[in-house]
Design a protein around this nucleic acid. Structure first.
Length: 284
DNA sequence: CTGTTCTCCTGTGGGC
DNA sequence: TGCCCACAGGAGAACA
C-alpha cells in the first residue's frame, strides 16, 4: 500500500547533463581569453591549484570537450579539467550582468570580454584541475573505458571485457574502466530495460543479454540527452540555478512501488554501498 | 589483481 | 517549529 508521494526529481549531473553543460557553455567561452579567476573555496574533491589564476591568465579557450564526466577546457598550454561531482553546475553570465556570488559559488572564471563562467557545487564533490600534459597521460583519464554512446562500446567489447569478472553486473557497469558515464541511476534503469537482475555475475550473461544491455545503456543515455536538449534551461539569463533535467525513472528510487511493466513490487537492495532497484519478476 | 570499505560534503526528509 | 540523524552519491584511496 502506497502512503507517500515521491516525485523522483533528481538533479545530479549524470553524463547527459555533463554533455549538455558542455554544449551550453562552449559557444560562450570558445575563443575567449581568461582574464580574472577567483577561487573562493579551494577545498573541492581535490584542492584547487593555488596558482590557477596565474596559470590561466591570458590563455585562450581553444575548445570545450568532454571525456566521461570530465569537462575539458582546452587552451594551447593545457587543460582545465572540471568535474561536477554530484551537485556541481556551471553557469554563464554575460558581460556587465554578474550577480554577486551566492553560497556555494566556489569559482569564477571571467574572460577578457566580460563573460563569466561560474562554478557552483554545494557538496563539493566536484573538481577543478589544471593539467599541462597530454590528456591520455592524465591519471584520472588514462584508464577509462569507452564512451557509452561510442561504437567502441558494443556487445563484443562488453562480453570480452567482463569474461573473467565474477562481480555483480551492476558494479561492473558502474566501473569507469569498463564503460564511462554510467552512474547509479542509469545503471539501474539500463538493467531494468535489459531485463537483467543487477546481482548476476558480470561474466554470466548470455550473448543476447550483453547485446540487450549495451543497447539499453545507449538508449537510456540517449533518451536522457534528447530530453535534456529540450528541457534544460538556458545557461544564460535564466531563472533557477542549473536547470538539470527533471526525469521520470522506471525503477530508480521506486522501492515498494509497482513495476511499470508487470505491476509487481520493485525491490531495493544494496550493492557496493549503493542502492539498487529492480523488479524480480521482469529481471532475471 | 580482485574485492571490499572508507571518505569527501551538504541538502533533504522522516521521526519525535 | 526545531533538533537529531540516516541517507543520497562519483569515484579515488586505502586496505584486506
Amino acid at each position: 500500500m502506497l502512503h507517500t508521494f515521491s516525485f523522483h526529481i533528481h538533479t545530479m549531473p549524470e553524463l547527459p547533463e555533463v554533455e549538455t553543460t558542455r554544449a551550453g557553455i562552449a559557444p560562450h567561452i570558445s575563443g575567449k581569453a581568461f582574464a580574472q579567476v577567483h577561487i573562493r573555496q579551494p577545498k573541492l574533491r581535490w584542492p584547487v591549484n593555488p596558482d590557477l589564476a596565474a596559470v590561466l591568465s591570458g590563455q585562450t579557450v581553444a575548445a570545450v570537450s568532454r571525456r566521461a564526466k570530465y569537462l575539458l577546457i582546452h587552451t594551447g598550454a593545457g587543460y582545465l579539467i572540471i568535474h561536477l561531482g554530484m551537485s556541481g553546475s556551471l553557469r554563464i553570465y554575460e558581460p556587465g550582468q554578474h550577480p554577486p556570488p551566492q553560497k556555494h559559488d566556489h569559482a569564477d572564471f571571467e574572460f577578457a570580454d566580460g563573460t563569466l563562467l561560474r562554478f557552483h557545487d554545494p557538496r563539493r564533490f566536484g573538481a577543478i584541475l589544471w593539467f599541462a600534459g597530454a590528456l591520455e597521460h592524465h591519471p584520472l583519464l588514462q584508464h577509462l573505458g569507452p564512451e557509452p554512446l561510442s561504437a567502441g562500446f558494443d556487445t563484443v567489447y562488453l562480453q570480452h571485457t567482463l569474461a573473467k569478472q565474477k562481480r555483480a553486473i551492476k558494479l561492473a557497469l558502474m566501473d569507469n574502466a569498463v564503460v564511462v558515464g554510467v552512474g547509479n541511476i542509469y545503471a539501474n534503469e539500463a538493467l531494468f530495460q535489459a531485463a537483467i537482475t543487477p546481482t548476476r555475475a558480470a561474466n554470466s550473461l548470455q550473448a543476447h543479454e550483453y547485446t540487450a544491455l549495451v543497447a539499453a545503456v545507449k538508449d537510456v543515455l540517449q533518451r536522457a540527452l534528447a530530453a535534456g536538449g529540450s528541457t534544460l534551461r538556458d545557461f544564460v539569463n535564466s531563472e533557477g540555478r542549473s536547470g538539470y533535467f527533471q526525469q521520470h525513472y522506471a525503477v530508480y528510487g521506486r522501492q515498494n512501488e509497482n513495476c511499470p511493466r508487470c505491476g509487481g513490487l520493485i525491490y531495493k537492495i544494496t550493492q557496493g554501498q549503493r542502492s539498487s532497484f529492480y523488479c524480480p519478476q521482469c529481471q532475471h
